[in-house]
Design a binder for these strands. Sequence first.
DNA 1: ACGCTAATGGAAACCGTTGTCAGATTCACC
DNA 2: GGTGAATCTGACAACGGTTTCCATTAGCGT
Lengths: 340, 340
Amino acid sequence: MSNAYNRPDQLSPELRRRVLETARRLGYPGPDPVARSLRTRKAGAVGLLLTENLSYAFRDPAAVGVLEGLALACEDAGVGLHLVPASPGREDVAAVHRAGVDGFVVYSVPDDDPHLAAVLERPVPTVIIDQPSIEGIDRVGPDDAAAVGKLAEHLVSLGHRQVGVICMRLARERNDDFVSPARQSGAHFHVQRTRLEALAAAFSGAGVDWAGVPVVERFDHTVDDGASAARQLLDAYPQITAVICTSDILALGAMAEAERRGLRVPQDLTVTGFDGIAEAERIGLTTVHQPVLEKGKTAGRLLLSSGERSAPKTITLPTELRLGRTSAPPRTVEEPWFGG
Amino acid sequence: MSNAYNRPDQLSPELRRRVLETARRLGYPGPDPVARSLRTRKAGAVGLLLTENLSYAFRDPAAVGVLEGLALACEDAGVGLHLVPASPGREDVAAVHRAGVDGFVVYSVPDDDPHLAAVLERPVPTVIIDQPSIEGIDRVGPDDAAAVGKLAEHLVSLGHRQVGVICMRLARERNDDFVSPARQSGAHFHVQRTRLEALAAAFSGAGVDWAGVPVVERFDHTVDDGASAARQLLDAYPQITAVICTSDILALGAMAEAERRGLRVPQDLTVTGFDGIAEAERIGLTTVHQPVLEKGKTAGRLLLSSGERSAPKTITLPTELRLGRTSAPPRTVEEPWFGG
DNA sequence: ACGCTAATGGAAACCGTTGTCAGATTCACC
DNA sequence: GGTGAATCTGACAACGGTTTCCATTAGCGT
């Protein structure tokens, strides 16, 4: 029977025809995929563990790009992509245990998330994206720090000394407000922490006191949140000449807020983003572009080719500073160290 | 053993602790999800059959919205979402058979796609989105036709008689060119066909000869393709006063092409879209908004609640005409019936 | 007609879990 | 000490395929 479906060459066409015909007559719907998986020890799917906040992921074009790349890699290999339902509030790790998959990709998850721990307990290969490396686990990530450095250098060379930062959430607990230094250095979202650290290093290197640079955090990742963050930032620090956002979405919001205030970008205010999403490119945002599609694809391929390898791999993808029409010298040149 | 993991209340905490501790010591990774699925006859996942062209889906914010809604519904129910790898060229229906899922959602698939047929053969509940209804199958869809009618009416009342249309692909075979009437009426993508038919009906009703209205098709669904379609359209029919696009993405491209030509929107050219994606709203595009998130959510809930019902359901979601800053009366009023 | 080989069909083991059920053990209480 | 309830243990039969292995048969040469 099994042969009739899976190995047409192993039996006579006549018998095969008869078997299939009888099967149809009896209303047999074809081999059960679950039973097949059990026997063959192949689920034919890879699991994707996303942020515990799903909408967060789907609203961010950068995340969607990763998803697309991963889906493409899976499609190439003919395996399914299983989105694990990681519920926000409850620590519903059961979903991770219940997922019938041959491996996991973990993306955009805080490093203290119990779901991540549950994934690592499963006896299947795992690839993590944009996370701090974990002993023995494959990893794909951009060289964020390098690009951030170039961005900061760009702003410094333009003459900006009074800057403000808008970033995405740094931990699982909501904090729609200014960020303390402690929270910055203890951030559980690796990407955000890396970017902030790189900014701090670059500006400190240029003689700017990083402790004096205001950083505003937003839990949700929407254009509106970017706008409200910019409002909060500019209300408290009107002397700021450049708003650095850790994502393009937030930067779009900052642009909107600038317009609302009658500030011209870039003449009155410089705004920069991160990620290099299509819409940003369309409006000429100065940003750091990273190959999100490649990131997903690479992770997928890495996962699907594991088993052939033994030593865990780390792949670093290139990022690129893209100068747009939203960055220019500050509106007035102030004394470098004492402005305010 | 099973009890220790699944029914903590059936045995003493002490025993449970001991069992789990022993399990860990022996390196037991927890119950195998596949075997569990086989036994319980619940896969804990729903399958999603998307277009055979994955990038197509991920690049379209409207599709992503549906995906998000569906994912949210799944998350609520604690089940996974399994993206079925429907390979473009090859008729790799096997992936549908291999998917261990409790049901399927079918979205944006041409009505003659073999994957769709394969899904219908599987003995699990199915919900289809934006497709012509199929006997005995649940369905979720917008009342596209009504909204399209209102959009056409809006353009007619503004005075537009010389219009052109840019639409997404109508069949699985590529045709990046003008569309013949036969191809229009025989379109395999239900949504596109419905929209074209509704436009035809509305404009015919206003005395415009639909056979004389140029329709340009694009296989890929990108802003650039929208631009190239607009170029092709306006090169051949410079007298056109309004470009009607069957998606916002295409409309964004048409806007870009208009700008490239030095045409002011809406003074020189009216451009309209479809779907109501966020970016369209941001730039004030006149479009038809449909609740994409709700569409996905509804489909998910419908699927997950099936089994409780017997009669198949059809749910129609409301759409809404949103007037933006991209539609205005034509640049010159020409004689209604003989222009050109 | 006989023996050997190759092809083919069918039976049985196995994948790892859950659910059931009978029997053993413990414990409290009369 | 006996009884009953509560708890624990162990065995075993599905679930529905795949795979291995063996027996049968067909084909062929001598």
